[in-house]
Design a protein around this nucleic acid. Structure first.
Lengths: 232, 232
DNA sequence: CGGAGCCTTGAGATTTATCAAGGGTAGTGG
DNA sequence: CCACTACCCTTGATAAATCTCAAGGCTCCG
């Protein structure tokens, strides 16, 4: 993305910023979000909850992610979005985004890329929950987070921030916190990872990918989006 | 959708039709699909497979569904698409679809709706696999199929086609075929469903929805898409 | 100092998987 | 028309994975 495009985005995002406290909802199930959100800082998640309290985290939102993109602006959403850590988000009017997409191919491409990766990631989570074991699911989550953060320049070597609790990991992987704990300890014992407090270090990336059968294709880490990607 | 729009679609779909034998791949992981597909007749699925043979069905494709929409045409896909029953599909050049989207708002809206529902459904499958029990997952799958088919006018009363085998249901719900069998029998014994051969009858729709905690919002059955839905 | 949230551990229960075998049915070739 | 095969469904017995319940310890914060 050219500097000029970067600048026009940065200006845009400066406009209306909001801070969300940790563990607070940004958008709640059944509501109509009235603007597009960009996550500037902090971690969040999409989640869905059943009447009896069971909760499933559907996706992690990391710094740089966009949500409620144009497509979302109109129908009531069928899940909630909440902050995991304190978040700062930028709110942008949908028309502004539409205009940008129309006039700026680089930005259109970036938004398209974001959408595409979101869907692919959602599919990968489905696959993970359906066919991987507890141990594999946790390893997979750690791999995904690591690669996504690295793409955003948020890793130092093999170390990155990891503010999820073991309860969060359980809700993302469909496991009880107790079992998450035991599996994490196993990964630690095998010197695959170190994880204490809010920092995660992957000691053996290949080994962890192997455990998870992690195939990063779905993240499109090369960010390749052909110029003619956007229809219309 | 107005009759004129219907007609222009029908003409389009007549162009290049293809028949796929049951259990054959249409698009394989890692390949670049070169055209947009419309499923005219028969059932298919998206699936992902691990090296050791574990397989997960990611989504069901029912008559009327579109896949590899514009957005997909460019990056190698990270999963495969296969026919469950014999399928007839229409292949349309991506440029043709782009043109249609640009010139025909009704069609653009329909395609947008399809995309939106696909993503929402993928999220719902993630939630199902993560937090529902075996029994609930199967009930949920049956509910989803029933409502989707009914929307396409493919139900007679509470009866619809259901060509999946119990192995297929297992691959969609992350369960072994043996366990699927036991749970299905339970649903039968409770007079919630009848399912024999390729036909499914839902004897107690409310009861089945209750078991599944099925909330059909994600399917957007009303097909509401405000006229200004499409950005750009 | 007290409380809250998080991590850890143990024991036992439950759900689901695995293994193994038998029966029904539909299509196929002789 | 009859065997034969392949595929699917069904059942039983046992094993493994994961959950539930319960309790204790640590750390951070007020």
């Amino acid at each position: 993305m050219a500097d000029a495009d970067r600048t026009s985005i940065d200006l845009l995002l400066d406009q209306r910023q909001r801070t969300i406290a940790a563990r607070r909802d940004v958008v709640s199930e059944g509501h109509l979000p009235h603007c597009v959100h960009f996550l500037l800082e902090g971690w969040g998640c999409r989640y869905r909850q059943l009447r009896d309290g069971r909760r499933q985290i559907l996706a992690l939102l990391l710094p740089g992610d966009m949500f409620d993109a144009n497509v979302q602006v109109l129908a009531a959403i069928d899940h909630s979005i909440s902050a995991i850590t304190p978040m700062t988000i930028a709110e942008v009017a949908p028309e502004t985004v539409s205009d940008l997409i129309r006039t700026n191919p680089a930005i259109a491409r970036a938004i398209w890329w974001n959408d595409h990766v979101c869907v692919a990631t959602q599919r990968e989570w489905t696959a993970t929950l359906g066919m991987r074991t507890a141990r594999e699911r946790i390893a997979h989550l750690l791999c995904e987070v690591y690669f996504r953060l690295r793409l955003m320049g948020r890793c130092v070597g093999r170390t990155c921030e990891f503010p999820l609790t073991q309860v969060d990991v359980g809700e993302a992987t469909g496991l009880t916190p107790v079992h998450v704990n035991r599996m994490v300890q196993e990964l630690r014992r095998e010197r695959l990872i170190e994880w204490a407090g809010r920092t995660l270090t992957i000691l053996d990336l290949d080994g962890l990918c192997e455990v998870a059968q992690f195939a990063p294709a779905y993240l499109h880490l090369d960010r390749t989006v052909p110029a003619d990607a956007i229809a219309g």
